[in-house]
């Protein structure tokens, strides 16, 4: 099988997208140092779906996520969160959008060391000056199993626990979409499994939309769908993935790239 045989992924136009991009390009530098990180990417992340983005290093996975989440500017094209086009927003509006509509989970746990677990979880709402929805918050906390650790500071938590706090924070505000950047990159396999099943549960049981960048086929297997990125373009998609099929597809890339 060659790359040309792989069908272009079906862009979910029939279901309302939580986030999408149209002709999204991101180019760094100019002249000799010009690097095309994203090359006219059209993608949509349907509501209530768990999407994994895979690809070799330098494929543009993180850049795609940063652009989609309004953390980075785009060179051309549009990105939407719900119906809001991001390039039309100023910094203040963008900040508010990130706060209210987007949840983040980073590879390095990225918690504030001075705040307790609970305070970290409610931080985005505290910043906005809103009271958290207590019922929902309880449900999130119970789902990640953090109830006994709420008063602890990050330095008193294990890596897996810290990442669960980060996940709870991303979900607590019921954002339109959650972006997770290699959320299990620093974790052992057991903690990884905990985090991934939690993310899966939040999609299946709570109707959350999650986009996860990963290079781990095991992690990707928890997703509803996998998009493969190479050289700044989406080159393949796979629904209902499992570890073997993802691995196989990755090998095919390596072979194609190696050829």
């Amino acid at each position: 099988m060659t790359i040309q045989d792989i069908p272009t992924p079906r862009v979910g136009l029939d279901a309302p997208a939580a986030a999408r991009s149209v002709g999204l390009s991101k180019i760094y530098g100019a002249g000799d140092t010009r690097v095309v990180a994203l090359d006219a990417v059209d993608v949509a992340f349907p509501r209530g779906e768990f999407t994994a983005i895979m690809g070799p290093s330098g494929a543009g996975k993180s850049t795609l996520m940063h652009c989609m989440a309004g953390l980075d500017s785009v060179t051309s094209g549009q990105t939407y969160i719900g119906t809001t086009e991001l390039s039309s927003l100023n910094d203040r509006q963008l900040t508010a959008l990130r706060r209210d509509e987007i949840g983040f989970v980073f590879q390095a746990y990225n918690l504030l060391p001075t705040l307790t677990a609970l305070e970290n979880i409610t931080l985005p709402m505290d910043i906005a000056g809103r009271r958290p929805d207590q019922e929902w918050l309880d449900r999130v906390i119970d789902t990640v199993g953090l109830r006994p650790r709420l008063a602890h500071r990050p330095s008193e938590l294990s890596g897996g626990q810290q990442q669960r706090v980060a996940c709870a924070r991303a979900l607590a505000g019921r954002p339109e979409i959650v972006f997770a950047d290699e959320p299990t990159g620093n974790l052992d396999s057991r903690s990884s499994a905990d985090i991934l099943s939690f993310l899966q549960t939040s999609v299946r049981a709570m109707g959350q939309t999650i986009v996860m960048v990963t290079h781990d086929p095991v992690a990707a297997a928890y997703a509803d769908r996998v998009l493969f990125l190479a050289d700044g373009r989406i080159v393949d998609g796979m629904s209902a993935p499992n570890r073997e099929r993802v691995l196989e597809r990755m090998k095919a890339f390596d072979a194609a790239l190696g050829a």
Partner: peptide, 12 residues
């Protein structure tokens, strides 16, 4: 930390 705060919605 400051980057994180900005990412999760603290304005300037």
């Amino acid at each position: 930390e400051i980057g994180l705060l900005r990412a999760i919605g603290m304005d300037r």
